[in-house]
Design a protein around this nucleic acid. Sequence first.
DNA 1: CCTCTGGGTATTTTT
DNA 2: TACCCAGAGG
Length: 745
Amino acid sequence: MSETDGAMLVIAGAGSGKTRVLTYRAAYLIHEKKVPPESIMAITFTNKAAEEMRERIIDLIGKRRYHPWVGTFHRTCANILRNYGPAVGLSDRFTVFDDSEQLAVIKRVMKNNNIDPKPYNPRSFLHRISRAKSHLITPEEFEESANDDFSKKILTVYTQYQMALREQNAFDFDDLLFEACLLLDNHRPTREILQAQYEHLLVDEFQDINPAQYRFIQLIVNPEHKNVFVVGDDDQAIYGWRYADPKFIDKFLDDFKPVNVIKLEDNYRSTDPILKVANEIIRQKTWGIEKTLRTNISGEDPPEFYFRQSEVDEAYFVAETIKEYIDEGGDYGDVVVLYRMNAQSRSFEEVFGRLGLPFQIIGGLRFYQRMEIKDILSYFRILVNDRDRPSLERAINTPKRGIGDKSKDKIFEFMVKNEFGLFDLVENKDDLIEKGLAPSIAKRLPPFLELMGRFRDKSRKLEHVKLLEWIIDKIEYEELLKAEGTYEADARLDNLNELKGAFKSFQEEYPGEGIDRFLEQVSLVSDLDSYQEKTSKITMMTLHSAKGLEFNVVFLPGLEENFLPHSRSQESPKELDEERRLFYVGVTRAKRYLYISCARNRRFRGQSLPQDPSRFLTEIPRDLIKGLEAIEISYRKSMEEPLSISWGSKKKKRVEDDWDIADTEEMPSDAEPIVTRIGSRKKKEKTQVKSEFKVGNTIKHPTFGEGKIIKINPAGGDDNFITIRFEKGVGIKMLSEQKAPLEKI
DNA sequence: CCTCTGGGTATTTTT
DNA sequence: TACCCAGAGG
């Protein structure tokens, strides 16, 4: 018996070097215990974390012929299903449906069953189904507890939703876990192969594990040796909404006993004043493992609190503070702005854009979710799985081939009845009418079928990039976009080029690997994975995405009731606790400087509403955060003036608020996150002021690059709005002459 | 079949 | 604000 045998749990406080613990464990097993690298499986939640762990392990053990398997739960399960599924008759060419595709299936099923989407929100069905699947509850098992009317409806939808997915040879995210568990559970040979192969299992972020994931761990760990090493921090559990439950920590202690438990409370990241605040936040928790973080890093800079008039003012405060940091020699890459919701990035995007601060946004709309990318990839997805309905629906009428919703429904009906995939249609294209397809449709289908036939032939000869170019060319997709002539279309063209780049690097990295691997990679990546650590840009992301990262300077704006804690989480103490942990996660990202702020009024969904500072701030002793007394003043004010009286409307508007008056005929799109969005308020009369620039001048902007001035008009005061057409997909922007750092060239 | 418009409404977080 | 969807009209 050695010290690496058996189960081990590491409770690793924020900043205590969790990743380090895992990577060193792997390296130790390989170096000292002579465990073959390929006998180790390490599981994380994000691809980003997996990538980082893989790199760090390689740094420690050097490049070898075999490496440990490092992957997310989802990717690991997908891999197992592809490799071992065929043994039990599952196809290895399944498609993974994303959120929007799942929703489309749900909506269709609801329609077929005459369930009105008005009173019954399709999302709530999806949510309930996902909950069932995450608890490994099959439709049959669900039936037993479906007593009330609503549950019965869910049962119907769940049952047919699963049937629809299977018909299309598709899995959703939850299926990957569920099906992998079923496979391991029901197919002993597979289970034994995997249990024998992976002598050691390492699991990261154990506090965020859901029942299916826990079951997966139980199934993959060799029951004799129980070599499982898990690392987590119950104080950073923030995925309850995905059915994660930190109480699995307790279950783990029981199921795998004896478990060796280690608690890490030394923080190597933050200064003492920051950690004091963090400890104070977590002290409020009602359950969990007690711990108090300690650090040796002293610091004279306490966290600071700022209270601003509006979300725009708040963004200006952040921008100014960042500028000071840069002036003192800091780097933009050290700075992060963390918010609760993606929508909160707006004010920062606009203000940073105006002031010329470089930034990158993580999250929001993802690259592979974009229309143009999905359009093109749908052709490839059909190649892998010709029953993938969402892809068929897209491809069949992109470009327009005169086949609308009605026709599509008929075609799919026909396909399902004959158990046809698309390539069966291709093979039978001459006698579709005989087989019962409406002639009006059968007549319009051949060009598409011929194209797909040729596409499949080409796919056997051409390398990936060439094949991509071939299909884009054949469907004249770029011409289509060019003809549009909008800036949005320009951005889409850029994205296509980026896609070509992605194909190319895949081809180089995995020569000889089929396109299905690429597609799988694509379907399982999140936007966080594209986060670039090394760029010299301010990073903006949600608190959820920030877990596991650290920054020298952290801004936590919007610390207000209904934002943090979020309005949807105020009902139960459990959810409230999770919000508090989110705050904790935010605070503990900071190494040296931490700025917390609130706005008195915040514009959200088109209207500005008065805000109250977050209750979490009232829980912190005032002397731990500089300027925190300001919240007292706020509460006094709201006593005098009931909250229903809006501040915003009566007050004189700030100049900045008027900046988004648009009078350009061409509006930039919001396709690129970096784009400044322009509002739609009516133009007001302003007097002309002299400008340093002329229409036609070429200028340079640090964020947007070079551009040509196409319009100058007064902004009131002594400022002008300069409308500039920037190069390459940045599009047209209207900037303030006074504030924007424009340089004539 | 396709495109445009206006009304209604609200995902918070992500694999 | 921004998206989705139904309905109208070409």
